[in-house]
Design a protein around this nucleic acid. Structure first.
Length: 324
DNA sequence: CATCAGGGCCCTG
DNA sequence: CAGGGCCCTGAT
């Protein structure tokens, strides 16, 4: 492909996540719509990544076991890569995949729980994780709004083809997302031509906020849940649903289950009550009562388990909700 | 062909 | 705080 960036092997090391750690369920989230920025196979994971203006390729391979976990990490870059820079990339990846998180208490305490216990049996060690930066995650959440999955994919692909960069490494061809400066500078009409509709204003507005340095992701990572929430809600196009995704996926707040959007309401009604539609207040109250400060991690286990199951056996009521 | 809701957000009254 | 508009698409 024209304009493809070729990356060469630059650095390799072994990572040691805290136990228990479930490699596959942490690097791959089957509930997410497919993005051409990463590729997953059993025990293997590839993704592109931006770090300090560098375009990188990341390959991770499962090693060890859930209780003695390790990851073989390979980085690909455009030019020889200084090893101190590599250390920073490792630290960044450790954050994104929550490799140093401590969820042993959760996995132990709820093994006998009627609802989440059996699911822990299957996915013990799964983390809340996000392979993207805060900015990239926001771009995804904006195209997610008020659109069925097919249209979301169409919008994201149009944006990637126009502003993304195809990257070739380790025999794979994957896109890297654009940088905030790129979208901050484009005309809103140009974005609208890609059929993103009213979202053009949000995509540009958020890009401007990042391009001007108004958003400090590092600081947000150190903040408490409520403080980070208040700051993120200032961004254009970010409301309760998007900020909820951010708090648990990007910032790994294990207790961030304080909001249920209409789509998730239908799914959690089934998962927590075995009924078609239960008031959101009942869903939140039950999760809080049973799982306390672990309530977000608990419902994440239920949610992802459902979508893992869907890979092998279609779940009819779910297929109707997804409407691909 | 026309109508409508979709994995929300924002603005108004 | 309830309700309509927003862009566009595929479903009906």
């Amino acid at each position: 492909m024209a304009g493809t960036v070729l990356l060469e092997p630059a650095f390799a090391t072994k990572l040691h996540p805290t136990a228990p750690f479930h490699f596959d369920a942490t690097v791959h989230k089957p509930s997410h719509f497919p993005m051409p920025t990463s590729h997953y196979e059993d025990g293997y994971y590839w993704q592109t990544m931006r770090f300090r203006r560098c375009r990188l390729g990341v390959k991770m391979e499962r090693r060890g076991s859930v209780d003695k976990p390790a990851i073989a990490l390979s980085l690909y870059a455009e030019r020889p890569f200084p090893s101190d820079e590599a250390a920073d990339v490792v630290q960044e990846l450790s954050w994104r995949f929550d490799l140093h998180g401590d969820i042993a208490d959760f996995c132990q305490r709820f093994t006998q729980d009627d609802i989440v216990g059996p699911v822990i049996g299957r996915w013990r060690g799964m983390r809340l994780s996000c392979s993207e930066t805060l900015y990239e995650a926001l771009m995804i959440y904006i195209v997610l709004q008020n659109a069925a999955v097919r249209r979301t994919i169409q919008m994201m692909n149009a944006l990637l083809e126009r502003y993304g960069t195809p990257i070739h490494f380790d025999g794979r061809e994957l896109y890297a997302l654009w940088q905030p400066e790129t979208l901050a500078a484009v005309d809103e009409a140009e974005l609208r031509a890609l059929k993103v509709g009213y979202r053009a204003r949000y995509l540009k507005g958020i890009s401007q906020a990042f391009a001007t340095g108004a958003v400090d992701e590092e600081a947000l990572r150190r903040m408490g849940k409520e403080e980070a929430k208040a700051q993120l809600l200032q961004l254009p196009g970010v409301g309760p649903a998007s900020v909820w995704y951010l708090l648990f996926e990007v910032f790994h707040h294990y207790d961030a289950f304080d909001y249920v959007s209409p789509w998730e309401q239908k799914i959690f009604s089934r998962l927590l009550f075995g009924r078609e539609l239960v008031p959101t207040s009942d869903i939140l109250a039950k999760a809080r009562r049973r799982w306390g400060c672990w309530r977000m991690l608990a419902v994440h286990y239920l949610f992802e388990d459902l979508f893992w199951r869907r890979r092998t056996q279609s779940v009819d009521w779910l297929e109707e909700l997804i409407r691909l």
